[in-house]
């Protein structure tokens, strides 16, 4: 093949350009920190990257769901504990009322008043609202502002559990309805306390009715305890899910980084090798393009 000066120049230029292009590739990778910036860089990796990004977005949402679930369950737990305390006080007052020998009509009246006040407090606790949304905590999906109205009638709506997704497919119920926690109306905890107060106001006091009231309070306490352990169990599940989500988040982040981020030692080595190639191309070009026969003609 006949080689001309122009061919030499063109070849050198092509070589130098391709070296420079490779150098730019490494420079881009190292300066941006990414090997995957557009789908054509690697269609397979793009698919993986998009899946991983979807997974991470879902995990972010799960983490938010878990925060919400934890807040609701914690709030329910503390409301139920408060309710337990009030209930124990009601039991104590009722027992005191049963203790007929020590009581006269006046003291029974006082007990009744205290019980009525307790019932108000209990209703107040039962009408606790969720901090994040302002919905009644024990009202199910009611559109009302409270679970119990001023007369103590349950206005919550049961049958539509409020759930939060805490895993890829795992959803957990995060609400406790008034019915579940405080009993089915009309025979619920508040009615029982009200009845006891009414019994104590009557004279003479019907001991049998008081004893029956006490039994009802006991049943209410059992129900509360059951609900507290239900809430505890749910909280434990949410905690587990939270730990899982954190783990999964770490795994996916590492995966995404492996797909998209530059392997720095490899890119640095590649850059160094390419630099050597580039310098060689430049040096060869300067040596080859220089001499012609002109240098040797007188």
């Amino acid at each position: 093949m006949r080689i001309t000066q122009r061919a030499l120049t063109a070849n050198s230029l092509t070589g130098i350009n391709s070296n420079l292009a490779a150098l730019t590739k490494y420079q881009n990778q190292l300066s941006s920190g990414k090997v995957l910036t557009k789908p054509s860089d690697s269609p397979t990796d793009t698919n993986k990257s998009m899946q991983t990004r979807s997974g991470l977005a879902a995990l972010d949402q799960q983490a938010r769901n878990i925060t919400d679930a934890t807040a609701r369950l914690d709030q329910a737990d503390s409301a139920l504990s408060t309710m337990q305390g009030l209930l124990q006080k009601a039991q104590a007052l009722t027992t005191q009322g049963l203790n007929t020998g020590a009581n006269n009509a006046n003291s029974n009246e006082a007990l009744a008043a205290e019980l009525s006040a307790l019932r108000e407090s209990m209703l107040g606790v039962a009408n606790t609202s969720v901090a994040s949304t302002g919905q009644p905590l024990f009202g199910g999906v009611t559109a009302q502002a409270a679970a119990y109205d001023s007369t103590g009638t349950y206005v919550g709506v049961d049958g539509h559990p409020i759930t939060q997704r805490i895993g890829a497919i795992e959803a957990i119920q995060v609400d406790i309805t008034g019915t579940e926690a405080f009993g089915q109306q009309p025979d619920d905890l508040f009615k029982a306390v009200q009845d006891i107060a009414a019994t104590l106001q009557a004279s003479p006091v019907d001991d049998a009715a008081l004893a029956a009231g006490l039994t009802k309070l006991q049943a209410a306490q059992d129900r509360l305890s059951t609900m507290q352990s239900t809430v505890g169990a749910r909280s434990a599940r949410v905690d587990d899910a939270s730990a899982l989500t954190t783990d999964r988040n770490l795994t996916l982040t590492a995966q995404l980084s492996a797909i998209e981020d530059v392997d720095i030692p490899r890119a640095t080595l590649g850059l160094a090798a390419q630099q050597v190639g580039y310098q060689a191309a430049l040096s060869v070009a300067s040596k080859v393009l220089q001499p012609t026969m002109l240098d040797f003609l007188r």
Binding site: R53, A58, T133, Q135, Q164
Partner: peptide, 21 residues
């Protein structure tokens, strides 16, 4: 993808009657 993912997920933030979510 990132924008739609965020959009679908944000439905899960709606947990009550509040307008913000």
């Amino acid at each position: 993808q990132a924008i739609t993912d965020k959009m679908w997920h944000s439905f899960e933030d709606v947990t009550g009657a509040d307008d913000a979510a």
